[in-house]
Design a binder for these strands. Sequence first.
DNA 1: CCTACCGATCGGTAGG
DNA 2: CCTACCGATCGGTAGG
Lengths: 196, 196
Amino acid sequence: MARPQSPDYDTRRQLILDTAADLIAKEGFAGTSVNDVAAACDISKSLIYHYYSSKEDILFAAMEDYLSDLRLVVSEAVGANGDGETRFRTVVHSLLENYKNAGAKHRVLLQELDRLSGDRRKAIVEGEDEIVGQIAELIGGIAGLGADKSKTRTAMTMLFMGMVNWTHTWFDPDGPINADQLADMATDIFLRGVRG
Amino acid sequence: MARPQSPDYDTRRQLILDTAADLIAKEGFAGTSVNDVAAACDISKSLIYHYYSSKEDILFAAMEDYLSDLRLVVSEAVGANGDGETRFRTVVHSLLENYKNAGAKHRVLLQELDRLSGDRRKAIVEGEDEIVGQIAELIGGIAGLGADKSKTRTAMTMLFMGMVNWTHTWFDPDGPINADQLADMATDIFLRGVRG
DNA sequence: CCTACCGATCGGTAGG
DNA sequence: CCTACCGATCGGTAGG
């Protein structure tokens, strides 16, 4: 008879992911040992290997976990009612709201991509590209860029992604400006800047 | 008689810095061993320790080296003749030009700051803050923000820093858009967005 | 007593 | 779910 799965299985799996993301965000992937993760979870290193078969597996799972949240949030905002500018503004609010709640995973997603093997890196990059592609379509519509301007549209979109993705290095949601105010500021600057 | 310093001393010191920056940008600080650096330089590990007394010393020196270039370039552009918008545009061109020539050191400066000890991290952050402060003054003038709007000015400046600092993740200077075109695009969008 | 540089190895810790 | 270990490699230093 197969031994039943622990009732804590999913909870513990998630704890490992969240804890690993915190440590990797602070110390880097190579600077975080599996033992560090185990100690912070108050479990043995061997138990970590019961849930994930390698350190890279943990990194990949943490990235997938957060990226799937982002994809959901962005496609909902993009597919909502309203004109392009309104939906764009909603996307920015959603992104910054999400970053606020998952700062460590966000930094890990942005900074540790090169630590994945080729196949897995490709899988993550594809997910990121789909998000960026949806935002690029919105921006293309707002800026009035035809299909012949795809290079310009891509560069514009990536300049915008920089504005929002860079926030993790300096923005404090509990500081003088909150996430919604920052989202409006970024939206206003960018829309005024690219409006056709 | 004291034995003289090797005539290759400065050349070799610089080789270590540049090589270490390349490896650290790719593999992360903890993922790069002193031996990796030595092998890539075709010298012994012991010789690395003749030039730098610890791995962290190498990281710090590489960051200082690049940061001092950035500071020079930015303060020159900021202090040049011309109105605020012209000087701002020059800063953006200078920054992107510099990033292009020092991609690895740029990534290291942005990504490995937490690997430094407190004192050294503080020294680097102070240098970065001076650059950001100079750019913030330019932007404040352009956007017509008084001293009472310093929080807004800071947020605006950091949104802009995101646009340019994020380029290292996606921009290919040999791609369809060159560094000068991208600098103009970023400048145009941002200036139209914040102009008072 | 200085600096330049090597082959070999130190005490500890990594992922597994 | 743990302790006990491994082959290898880590950052840093010894003698000469």
